[in-house]
Amino acid sequence: MNRSLLTRLGLYAAIAAPSMLLVATDQPFLIQVAIGTLISAILALAWDILSRTGQVSLGHAAFFGIGGYGSALLTPVLGPVLGWAAGILLCGLVAVLLGAVTLRLRRLYFTIATLSFSLSIQVLILVTPGLTGGSTGIMPPVIAGGSPPLQLLFVTGCLVVAAGVSDVFLGRRFRPAFFMIRNNPELAAASGVPVTRLKILAFAVSGMVAGLAGSCYCGLYGYVIPDDVFTTNWNVLPLAVTVLGGMDTTLGPIVGAVVLRLLEELARQAVGGVGYQVVYGAVIILFIVGLPEGLAGLGRVVLRRFRPPGEGTRIKARLAS
């Protein structure tokens, strides 16, 4: 149809190509690494969709876990397709409720509320062993019969879906309205935007995409305990990945997930032990300070250098403003 659609299809092909290559060349270790990386990318895309409305979450582990647990527990009852759909819809429902409750909270208070929410969901799992297995965990049906190459292809497909959803919310209908809600909600309302409805919509979509990531994660090995999904790691990771790669873009969270994984491996090789985590954290902070627009922003700057001068200004990415 038009150029932007072609560009997008090209982007999705470029996202899928490395996975195809890994599967074709049969690299077991890299395939495992890729599966984990792409799941982080899906979760980071979910986080970014919400942050475009100014809602900075530190509680996405909750949706990651609810999606994973929901799909796992509902698949034996409803079958794989409906089971996953129900698990992901459950995330949407929970997100709508959480979104409605946290609607009036400003910035940091919102963030703290999401963090507390994820902690309380973990407790909820621990105190309901009859329903959720409690601390002993559950045994979700594995994806693709447990074959890593097929799992990678499946997760890649899910990532392309998440990228498509992200692009819808970067389109003409939502991007300007979302940024206006983030920057100046009164102005958005004075422009006819139903601010509350859009914030909750963003929350629901974000929660469902995070639930998709969690469903993928839980379906990898056939065994999951609450500590695997409801951890601070899954709360902080999407933020770190997105800020590293570039907020408000589809490519940013994906590039960020890959680069973060690379940094982690490099630090592990160079430092070893547990000390590597310190180095790895320090490098992330350096990146964030040095590249406020993330790697995607750096890419734009480099592209502009090679093009005739047009827009030269840098627009700083902000966490919440």
Binding site: R172, P176, A177, F179, M180, N183, N184, A188, S191, I315
Partner: peptide, 22 residues
């Protein structure tokens, strides 16, 4: 608004398109 505060990263076209759409 007496003091216009629009998102810096949006274009003229995008700002006007918000009420046009909504």
């Amino acid at each position: 608004y007496q003091v216009p505060r629009v998102p810096k990263e949006l274009t003229i076209d995008e700002v006007i398109s918000v009420p046009l759409l909504y």
